[in-house]
Amino acid sequence: MKTEHEIVLETKDLNFYYGKKLAVKNITMQFPKNMVIALIGPSGCGKTTLLRCFNRMHDLYKGTKYEGEVLFNNENILSKETDATQLREQIGMVFQKPTPFPMSISENIAYGLSLKGIKNKTEQKDRIEKALKEAALWDEVHDRLDKNANGLSGGQQQRLVIARALAVEPSVILFDEPTSALDPISTSKIEELISELKSTVSIIIVTHNMQQAARISDKTAFLYLGELIEYNITDKIFTTPDNELTERYVTGRFG
């Protein structure tokens, strides 16, 4: 259906090892631009591991190994020449738990901007406001930007983290179960936000919550034991999946 969509990220025969354990097996898939792609599957299926290949987060730990290719802007980001630091400016990440830095609300966002080389105070100020508005947090925090970010509620902290990721204007944001630590109201705010954001960034989201995947994603990939079992339009995955395993998982019969 959406074959005319531009591809932002693409994996080719991607394998990933923790030591000798193969955690992601031979995955080839394409991520269209300006869409929300959900990765679902039972715990330990490799969905988070796969997500963390896209910004080479695994590089931080010893004994990890990639094989195959991950193409971003037609470049293999797994190659030695790719500067992981620069890559991560273009592919942002939001984690399971809100991770505000131990500084004020505005400094949290300014931090990412400074890393990118944007140090002009006026420009920073504009960008902070823009990012907070995009993350639907501005109205709640505009009068206490210089207060410690730890004073925000969990949901606000997570939106701050999203604002921080948005401020550096990445083309992709990776979400690793972003609402698993949040209450239902905060969760629905984040979900709403993710749906709005796809007009500006491409989104890949790992989630345990199948309703969430069904609600917000355009395409869904089902992974099991490190393998990509099925990848299709979200509606199809949740109504008439081709694979029996997928059907059993989305109908809650295992997982």
Binding site: N55, M57, L60, T85, Q86, L87, R88, E89, G92, M93, F95, Q96, K97, T99, F101, P102, M103, Y111, G112, L115, K116, V161, R164, A165, V168
Partner: peptide, 27 residues
């Protein structure tokens, strides 16, 4: 210092020194 906090900074494109200077030391 929680790993997830350091990963967040790396995830924004911080170098090792920037993570130490602005995350680990303040924390």
């Amino acid at each position: 210092t929680p790993d997830i906090l350091k990963e967040s900074a790396y995830g924004l494109g911080a170098t090792k020194w920037e993570v130490v200077r602005y995350i680990v030391l303040p924390y």
